[in-house]
Amino acid sequence: MKKRFLAWLYGDQDVMDGILDNFNKPDVSHSELKKITRAAEEEYDHRPEVLEAIGRDRARFRTIYLVIAFISCIMLTLVLLYTVSLLPEYGAENPRAVEVVSRYVEDGLEETGAVNIVSGMILDYRAFDTLGESHVLFTALICVMILLRIDRKNQRSDYEDYYTVRTDTYFDLSTDPVLRLVCAVIVPCILLYGIYILLNGQNSPGGGFSGGAVLGAGMILFSVAFGFDKADRFFTLKVSNIVTFVSLGFYSFAKGYVFFMGANGLENHIPKGTPGAIFSGGMILPLDIAVGCVVGCTMFGFYSLFRRGSIGGQI
């Protein structure tokens, strides 16, 4: 007893060893265990019949891939060359460019109902282009998610991530009272300003992209100041997915409807409203809101994925 007490006193032996922790203590060290498992896995994967099957699959895939790549390259080249052949000659007077610009400036307010001509251009005349841009943002979010998202297959324990967890808690800004106090004042103002920009896109400089960026930046500041736990209570992966899907779906549906029913001089029966009012410009305001939602979700999703590998903390 005394010997054991002295051993505990001088730190030679931990009395609680085997009682409190280290339930499954392996006989070998962690790195050695990793090495042994990897060797066994490699031996299993590199069986001759498996290697042969993989080689066969790879050769078949390579042939098909080459054929499809060749055909699509040729077709793309032909389409681009045909388009180039339709362009006016270099240096010649290009009537289309002059006509389009003067039409936008002179008849933009009357035809789109938007005081801000840029908004009328990107969300009415060229709304299809903006639709593609929103989908590009969505695709970028998906790509970042594929690359950085932590799921059950590549999840690491806090023990393996010891250094990352240490530095993350050490540099965590959410414990700072200065930032918390200032952000409690600033963040609502930023979000309100973002909503103002979003709703006034047809009347003043602004619109979906800038308003969504301000909203996303406000969300990022909120999660920096108060921690991800607070942001997770209302912005989960499910919410992000639903908001993005509803926005993009509404945009595609509404713009497709307008293209098929109202474009090319046909009668457009969506009212334009009085220029300068909030409800003016026909479809521009709802489309602005949809684009803003997508941009905000994408910005906050980027930040969240780069910082901790998930949106909303779920794995």
């Binding site: 050490y170 540099f171 700072d176 200065v178 930032l179 200032v182 004042v185 600033i186 103002c189």
Partner: peptide, 20 residues
């Protein structure tokens, strides 16, 4: 008001990162 709220806070964090 907003410049006096935000500018010292960002300076505070820059100096904090420098110290750390």
């Amino acid at each position: 008001l907003f410049m006096w709220l935000t500018s010292p806070v960002s300076t505070h964090f820059l100096s904090r990162i420098e110290v750390n």
